[in-house]
Design a binder for these strands. Structure first.
Lengths: 358, 358
DNA sequence: CTGAAAGCGCTTACAG
DNA sequence: CTGAAAGCGCTTACAG
């Protein structure tokens, strides 16, 4: 005692039955006599026995664990995504094995390969979906996979993603409807798929409206780059009517720059973001943005993965069959003060947007 | 092929060596002839072989995985904590097996027991440390453990925690130094250890200063309860000079209530929070608060756990020995606008607080 | 340097 | 309903 962990053999010896019977009793199989079952459970409790996870996984070929491989584990987006995944995992009695790789493709490859024999399925978000062969080479064979916000040139795995293009178009149309004509866009990282799609939506929407004028400023999805962009916008010769930042963090950084310069939002210049992070409604003025339910994205991704896992042991085959086009989630316009007070009121009166959490 | 995963036997057969040699080659043991090693690696690569995690763990008695059991996985606090843990885990080549239990003690017990045979050590945060026997009964025996922000009546495991009491005292003293006399405190959940310690600090600091007057309002650590408390404070007969919310989220909710009521901060009433969440510096006015480096807490907790793990296989013994008093991390006062503009300037001029990220 | 064999702690047909 | 035995896929003394 004290040195060696208690195993199923200890329980069997103490309960005077075979390990097979202990296993069956503990796993709730029906073919165990009731008094025997009780005896086993009682001994297991008394010895504080817990089954050895690796041993159980190895022999049962099931881990009750879901692998989650993400670019990062912290920050608003991943936190919400994990919340959604966690909610479903808990409800379905699954554990979560998380890995992050911080932008290193090799590390992501290693993380994916390390999942073999540890999980029953994989939720993966990768910016490298575009690289030929990357996913095929790094995703464990035979393991059900659902991709999240990961662009696949040719869909080979089931996937869920946010329709960033549609969201950006909706925001530009909102700004135009408020009478703003010259609109500055603060973009995200060039290699980021969300950022690219939002940029594409911005350009398409501007191009579709004669009279609309677009300008673009670079950004990195963080406050600091939003702040820099805000200063650059103020320093530019002609001040735009509105600024559309590709995410809320940059919009906040930009707002901060405007506040520092004494420029009033939305009086002097309108402002909008993307994501609807919790802070968006707390800043002053509150921020007009596109609401993306990240948690719902996580929930649906795991739900879909569990369908595959439960559909049968024929992992890859099922996955291949279920692939097809990515399932798309469309963001919702949330009108608040920053895009133009009067118009916001007018829209609110008509009872349209922003009826959610406001 | 296609149906069966490739195992070490497939690699051995293909490379014309024994499985033992494959294992040694793949694990970088030195006792493998160079040409043989190359051949094995080449075959493994070609077959896209990855070792089976459970099998490897079972036979090597090591998982390279750290179990993390937290009340919740999302939200600012846990997100930051996980960030710190993740940073160290990545640097040291460890994976993270996460479990949340959302306030259900039975579920936490189950999560803890399920870790056996899946992890090499455990990072645990639990509000049930006070219940007699809870930790002793639920923590897997023989597994190194470090507790985070978990109160133990009699220290039995190594632990790290935030010194919330000292933080609250420091904040009250700051408010008093600014000339505020009547101070309202918005508390957190009654069963929450952090909340209780902050409340205790508030009371002690008020009691230590003749002339200071304290009032208390209930809260739940979320924006909504801060908002309610803010309204209750305005509705009360005598308006306090300052409000000290036990966390930033409530401070923001309170601020929102004040803004709605046309009450100016800090002109009409000063406001302070606790935690220094990222938004704290973006709201208007920016929020005076206590900075708690949650990420550092996570980093240090895992670093300490790894020390134990690497110290030897004698898990519980080492753990017991290393226990002693909890290692304490003291929050830092960050003075911004909300606690009183003039005073903040004055302090800034003296070059004291808030020199961090500002 | 290499291989045959035992063993990690379970689960699960297979007999009875 | 129960047990003896094989097997899950690895690692690691033990011999040589």
């Amino acid at each position: 005692m004290g040195r060696q962990a208690v195993t199923i053999r200890d329980v069997a010896r103490e309960a005077k039955v075979s390990v097979a019977t202990v296993s069956r009793a503990l796993n709730g199989h029906s073919n165990v006599a009731e008094p025997v079952r009780r005896q086993v459970l009682e001994v297991a409790r008394r010895l504080r026995y817990s089954p050895h996870g690796a041993a159980r996984s190895l022999s049962s070929r099931s881990t009750q664990t879901i692998g989650v491989v993400l670019p990062d584990l912290h920050g608003e987006f991943f936190s919400e995504l994990i919340r959604g995944i966690d909610a479903v995992a808990r409800a379905r009695g699954r554990r979560l094995l998380l890995s992050s790789y911080h932008g290193d493709p090799d590390e992501q490859g290693a993380a994916l390969r390390a999942m073999r024999g540890r999980v029953d399925g994989l939720l993966v978000m990768s910016p490298y979906g575009d690289r030929p062969g990357f996913l095929a080479e790094n995703l464990p064979q035979l393991l059900p996979v659902v991709l999240i916000n990961t662009h696949q040139p040719e869909p080979a795995w089931p996937a869920l993603e946010i329709d960033n293009h549609a969201g950006a178009v909706a925001m530009v149309e909102h700004l135009l409807a408020l009478g703003h004509r010259r609109i500055a866009f603060i973009g995200g990282p060039a290699h980021n798929h969300d950022a690219r799609e939002r940029l594409r939506g911005f350009r398409d929407a501007i191009a579709a409206h004669p009279g609309a004028v677009g300008e673009e400023y670079p950004g990195e999805f963080d406050e600091a780059s939003g702040h820099r962009a805000g200063r650059a916008i103020l320093a530019s010769g002609t001040r735009p009517d509105a600024v559309f930042a590709a995410n809320d963090m940059m919009a906040l950084g930009c707002l901060y720059a405007f506040v520092q310069a004494g420029v009033r939002v939305p009086g002097d210049i309108a402002l909008a973001g993307f994501d609807d992070i919790p802070l968006a409604r707390f800043v002053h003025p509150s921020l007009t943005t596109m609401r993306v339910s990240i948690a719902a994205l996580g929930e649906r991704a795991l739900a879909r993965l569990l369908e595959q896992i439960e559909a049968g042991a024929d992992g890859a085959e099922t996955a291949g069959a279920a692939a097809g086009a990515a399932q798309v989630m469309v963001p919702e316009l949330v009108v608040r003060e920053s895009s133009g007070r009067e118009a916001a009121r007018a829209q609110a009166r008509r009872g349209r947007p922003g009826k959610g959490r406001e």
